[in-house]
Nucleic acid binder design. Structure first.
Length: 619
DNA sequence: CCTAGCTGTCATTAT
DNA sequence: CGATAATGACAGCTA
């Protein structure tokens, strides 16, 4: 407001509130409306199948709909799409329109591409399909993610950023040729994990020069030399990861913990269980596993099945405005897909290739890598995740703790944030493997008493195999053994209790979500009932007036006429034609208008079939 | 002082 | 059979 600016140099403060979640909420709300057919104003017919939607939403995402709707401004438009558009291709695109997520499978990628091309969908780039088609068509051959050279799949010179190891899909997200405030979304190493913040509406950090993309890009090795994240405190904003050059001593995860994490990861990997699964967290990795549990949307290897779990090898393209669009590999079974393995391995090697080797530890002799584990994921890089850092340092974790739940959340993921103003230690950043301070000091005291030859912390953090090994090696006394087992048991149980409680809260929240959903459905049904009642009244009114007009022409009374019409002996072809029926007596004659109309109403319009409430009761 | 919520611990059961 | 996870119950602490 120029007029409000004072002339003495003092400027009127102008504040702009920009909600980080508003757009997500709007989109989610629209999606819910679509699913419940609320406020939908168009029916799209594809291959004889109907899809309800909102004109404005479709028009905003798609050239085809935009032009069609502009030319057809009628209410409740029914738009039949040409044969080029198939259900297989259109349905994922429609979902994408409302969710910003596009589900690809091996089977549908071609159809989706064709439909997107035909309809002129925004925010979808050809390169996306050019990348995906070979991936999905040769899925079993393991997706060949380009490593250092970035030379595979995408034809040379086609959106490939040479020497970067990743392909930048120009104009991927915005569909606009105008310069973007944020760098163009990058399909990091082809398959970015679903690490986008819960709501991608705003960048996780203020965009400083040279530091605009403080997400996967900044963490990746490609940007490492120039990344300012390294110099700014040494902490990568993404999950508070230490930067590559950081000394391991600075890690909040103790070396013992880190080593055991690796040990566990390798063990888990052998049995094909995601170490970051919310269903199977690392026993020896408390903070990490449970942070991952809390951040289920952040877990790249989550195993929790979703209702819309796609086929094996399916990928989700997620579009967001200010963060890189992502492709998230999905899985259906506990076993990881080759795509997923590739992704994890890629990230592990891609983030800190030097540290992966420098910090690698000798394998636990009891847990040698199986032959199957060759080529599987190495989670050494997880050692550098400082998940015990304050969540406020990490925009992603921080957001999880807020009440503003992400647009793509499921109920369970939001449980903690909504139910617990004070997150439990299992989710909070200050959680550690140690007991409370008093307990910890008492335990330390006891450890000194029994002259424990290794740190107490290791007792609860080391893997089972390492634990057994150290017990064998150390030749502990009976007292020491009892102490060690007691500490370990209590530690494990403590974490188990925390998990148990969190699950309980999640369950409660999920049930609350279900209640909310069912209430919405009830409201919707109630509205439908009211609408039907209105239409029923109108129908009855017109019917009765029709009868009266017929009666006024010298025909039998309207009631008798209706009774004749409703008589079971009536020939099916007779429609309100005056006739005499031997079965109709004066007693049969309906004397009440309400009775007549009640009988005349088709069964589907009878109030008692429409809903539990009769018109009289609702009136 | 009471209460609710959180947390650790123990006992038990299942895997 | 031992280790572990899950969970109910209980107690202590704290706001």
């Amino acid at each position: 407001m120029p007029g409000t600016m004072s002339v003495d140099g003092h400027q009127t403060s102008v504040f702009t509130f920009q909600s980080a979640v508003h757009c997500c909420h709007v989109l989610r709300s629209l999606d819910e409306q679509r699913k419940e057919d609320v406020l939908c104003d168009v029916t799209i017919v594809v291959e004889n199948r109907s899809f309800r939607a909102h004109c404005s939403v479709l028009a905003s995402c798609c050239d085809y709909f935009h032009s069609r709707f502009l030319n057809n401004a009628s209410q409740n438009l029914v738009l039949t799409l040409p044969h080029q558009v198939t259900v297989e291709g259109f349905e994922p695109l429609l979902d994408f329109t409302y969710t910003a997520k596009l589900l690809f499978t091996e089977d549908n990628v071609v159809a989706v591409r064709r439909c997107a091309q035909f309809l002129g969908f925004h925010n979808l780039d050809q390169a996306c399909f050019q990348f995906l088609s070979p991936k999905l068509s040769s899925h079993d051959a393991a997706v060949q993610l380009d490593r250092k050279d970035g030379s595979s799949e995408v034809p040379p010179g086609e959106n490939a950023t040479s020497g970067c190891g990743s392909r930048q899909l120009e104009n991927w997200d915005t569909g606009s040729a105008a310069p973007q405030p944020t760098p163009p979304p990058v399909l990091e190493k082809n398959l970015s994990l679903d690490f986008s913040p819960p709501c991608p509406a705003s960048p996780p950090f203020p965009a400083a020069p040279g530091q605009e993309q403080l997400c996967l890009q900044s963490c990746g090795p490609e940007l490492q030399p120039s990344s300012t994240a390294t110099g700014s405190g040494g902490l990568c904003p993404f999950l508070s990861m230490p930067s590559p050059g950081e000394e391991p001593a600075n890690l909040n995860i103790s070396e013992g913990v880190a080593l055991e994490m690796v040990d566990e990861c390798q063990i888990r990997d052998k049995v094909e269980v995601c170490p970051l699964s919310d269903q199977d967290p690392l026993p020896g990795d408390l903070s990490l596993a449970d942070q991952a549990t809390e951040c289920s949307t952040l877990c790249p290897l989550r195993t929790s099945a979703t209702p819309e779990t796609p086929d094996k090898g399916a990928l989700i393209f997620e579009s967001s405005e200010n963060t890189p669009s992502t492709l998230t590999p999905m899985e259906t079974s506990r076993g990881r897909s080759s795509v997923e393995r590739e992704v994890a391995e890629h990230l592990a090697k891609g983030f800190w290739p030097d540290l992966c080797t420098s910090l690698s530890e000798p394998q636990d002799p009891e847990d040698p890598p199986s032959s199957e584990s060759v080529g599987t994921v190495d989670f050494h890089w997880l050692k550098h995740l400082d998940l015990s850092a304050a969540t406020s340092e990490c925009p992603f974790l921080r957001d999880l703790g807020s009440d503003e739940t992400p647009a793509v959340e499921d109920c369970s993921s939001a449980a903690q944030s909504e139910k617990s103003p004070c997150p439990s230690p299992i989710n909070s950043a200050d959680y550690s493997n140690s007991d409370t301070e008093e307990d910890a000091s008492a335990t330390q005291e006891r450890a000194r008493e029994v002259a424990l030859p290794f740190p107490v912390k290791q007792i609860s953090t080391m893997s089972r195999s390492a634990f057994q090994q150290i017990l064998r090696q150390q030749q502990l006394t009976q007292e020491q053994l009892e102490f060690v087992h007691d500490v370990r048991r209590r530690s494990k149980n403590r974490v188990a209790a925390q998990r148990c409680r969190k699950r309980k809260l999640d369950c409660i929240h999920k049930l609350e979500c279900d209640i909310k959903k069912l209430r919405g459905q009830k409201d919707k049904l109630h509205q439908e009932q009211l609408q039907l009642k209105v239409s029923l009244d109108a129908t009855l009114q017109s019917l009765f007036s029709l009868c009266q007009s017929v009666c006024s022409e010298g025909s039998p009374p309207a009631e008798q006429l209706l009774a004749q019409y409703l008589s079971p002996d009536r020939p099916s072809s007779v429609l309100l034609t005056p006739m005499s029926s031997p079965s109709l007596t004066s007693q049969d004659t309906l004397t009440s208008k309400q009775q007549v109309v009640g009988e005349a109403v088709p069964p589907c319009l009878k109030p008692d079939l429409v809903g539990p409430e009769t018109p009289s009761s609702t009136a």
